[in-house]
């Protein structure tokens, strides 16, 4: 069976000639969690935005290759069309409507989807119920991230794309967010594409992972394999000290300090 999402050797260019993704291929099978890992600036966000069509609003486009969702090519489509097909992107940096209350955030997104059972949000993020009258801008970082993911659920996505849900959150809160993501994956059957710098956390829930550097995939494999892979352990999970490293490895190692 073909995968739900198939990204086939794409190149992405930002206006005017900034080549950011240099031939990336990934597969997301239905019902799985796939992680895209890599340091800051690797191109994770660009990949997710290329899939969602939001790249257009940043004056970027897919110049080579193709993106297929359930067999239909979707590269360079408008973001509203892609979201109608069931692909919802939760942007990095907790992009919620900060001037609206939690409840109003839910109402606004419900308007787009006609459905909008607020209980769906509160089911997976019960903390938000007590804060439903607060302005979203006054929520804690963790609560804002929960709201951002909760809003996406209102669209009943087939493919949920999460961009760095752990960024800037305390480890305890990261665990809580990841618990909820895992739970909604299991209970709603949502397929998830997860971009993270926090490789360790992402590989805890993912089935498969891709490591991107500088717009190219450098390693890929089953999450279990990646967790036990010596290179990955050294450079992406920070488990061992590196010694006698090649230039390329040394570069990874330096990066490790920044983002693992």
């Amino acid at each position: 069976m073909p995968p739900m999402l198939f990204v086939n050797n794409i190149e992405v260019v930002y206006h005017p000639y900034i080549l950011v993704l240099k031939g990336i291929s990934i597969k997301v099978p239905e019902g799985s969690i796939v992680a895209v890992l890599g340091p800051n600036g690797a191109g994770k966000t660009t990949l997710l935005k290329a899939i969602s069509g939001l790249i257009k609003l940043d004056r970027g486009r897919v110049t080579k290759g193709e993106i297929r969702f359930r067999g239909t090519p979707i590269q360079n489509r408008d973001p509203d069309i892609v979201s109608r097909m069931g692909i919802i992107y939760v942007a990095e940096g907790r992009r919620i409507f900060k001037e609206l209350t939690v409840e109003e955030n839910i109402e606004a997104v419900s308007y787009a989807w006609g459905s909008g059972d607020p209980d769906l949000v509160y089911k997976y993020f019960p903390r938000l119920r007590a804060r439903r009258k607060s302005r979203a801008g006054y929520l804690s970082g963790g609560e804002q991230q929960m709201l951002a993911i909760g809003l996406a659920l209102l669209a009943q996505p087939r493919l949920l794309m999460l961009d760095e849900p752990s960024l800037g959150l305390a480890p305890k809160i990261v665990n809580e967010v990841y618990e909820s993501v895992k739970r909604l994956h299991e209970e709603e059957g949502t397929t998830i594409l997860l971009a993270e710098q926090n490789a360790r956390k992402a590989l805890e829930i993912a089935d498969y992972g891709y490591i991107i550097e500088n717009g190219k995939i450098v390693i890929e494999g089953e999450a279990e394999k990646l967790r036990s892979d010596k290179d990955v352990q050294e450079f992406y999970l920070g488990l061992k000290k590196a010694e006698g490293v090649s230039y390329r490895r040394a570069k990874w190692y330096r990066r490790k300090k920044r983002w693992v």
Binding site: I88, V90, I96, F97, E104, N105, A108, V109, W113
Partner: peptide
């Protein structure tokens, strides 16, 4: 109204609104 709240959401952040499927 939901319509009005959605209009406020678009006013605050059209990009984010598009990501959540609002008809911006």
């Amino acid at each position: 109204t939901r319509l009005g709240v959605a209009m406020r959401a678009v006013a605050e952040d059209p990009y984010g609104a598009a990501a959540y499927g609002l008809p911006v």
